[in-house]
């Protein structure tokens, strides 16, 4: 039986999520044995034509050309998985969605007229149907291995659907908001990173994006009680998953 084929695609991003695949040092050769890596330009000159059983898509859609390209990729992919905050929420570059793009372009480029970009940075799901999303900036490589394993086994991957707070409890991490009065997005953020920030005494900065049913209003009210002004509350929500609807709306009410 032919091995399932894997393709890895890149849009506007930092490469960190696809790097996570190469960072699976213990599993990489086993994965490469079980799957035919058909298209993965960051790692290989070889490119086999589609269709592909599994497409991993990194990055957000920010140009008219990319808005077309993702449709062709969808058409060639049996399963399409969006990986990372850019592909699932628009990424840090979605801060442009809240600003004047022409002004931003002029601030960076002497000749903004050379550029051909969209006014917004949007997730893959805004353009084509997405089968599974792996969240995070970057994604967790453990979730990536679970995803590939699940696809090979023909089952859904087991991914957390609860808030970061649950991870703190599971790890026995003291609550940085209760104990230290530090602002922490843990109550409204999807778990999965491995409880990284609170474990070093830092409030979660929300890089896995909002958890389903996030009560952002209650959390921003608490931030205000902790002494954050409206701009600080807005900026806390406007980072790597700024355009995720729950965070975007929460940010709008502040600053």
């Amino acid at each position: 039986m032919a091995r399932p084929t894997l393709a890895v695609w890149k849009f506007a991003s930092c490469d960190g999520c696809q790097l996570s695949l190469l960072d699976c040092e213990d599993e990489l050769l086993a994965i490469a044995g079980a799957i035919e890596i058909a298209h993965f330009p960051e790692a290989s000159r070889k490119s086999v034509a589609g269709p592909y059983d599994l497409s991993l898509v990194e990055g957000s859609i920010t140009t008219p050309e990319d808005a077309e390209r993702i449709k062709h990729i969808r058409a060639q992919s049996h399963s399409l998985v969006a990986i990372g905050a850019c592909a699932t929420a628009g990424g840090i570059q979605s801060l442009r969605n809240f600003a004047d793009l022409d002004g931003m372009a002029a601030a960076v480029y002497p000749r903004p007229d050379y550029l051909d970009v969209l006014a917004t940075s949007t997730p893959i799901s805004a353009h084509v149907p997405v089968d599974i999303e792996l969240h995070g900036c970057p994604i967790s490589k453990y979730q990536l291995v679970e995803l590939v394993t699940a696809v090979l086994a023909g089952r859904r991957p087991r991914l957390p659907k609860f808030a970061q707070c649950v991870e703190c409890k599971a790890h026995g991490t003291a609550c940085v908001m209760v104990a230290e009065g530090q602002p922490c997005l843990g109550p409204v953020t999807l778990a999965g990173c491995g409880n990284l920030c609170p474990r070093v005494g830092r409030g979660c900065y929300g890089c896995f994006g909002p958890v389903e049913g996030a009560n952002v209003a209650a959390m921003t009210a608490r931030f205000a009680e902790l002494g954050l002004d409206a701009r600080q509350i807005r900026d806390a929500l406007r980072s790597f998953t700024a355009a995720a609807p729950a965070f975007a709306e929460g940010g709008q009410g502040n600053g």
Binding site: A12, T62, M104, A105, A107, V108, Y109, D235
Partner: peptide, 18 residues
């Protein structure tokens, strides 16, 4: 030809710590 992401511009107005 990687799409521009305008980092210098989106940093304006943010706290130094960001």
């Amino acid at each position: 030809f990687e799409p521009p992401r305008f980092f210098e511009a989106l940093l304006r107005g943010r706290d130094a710590a960001d």
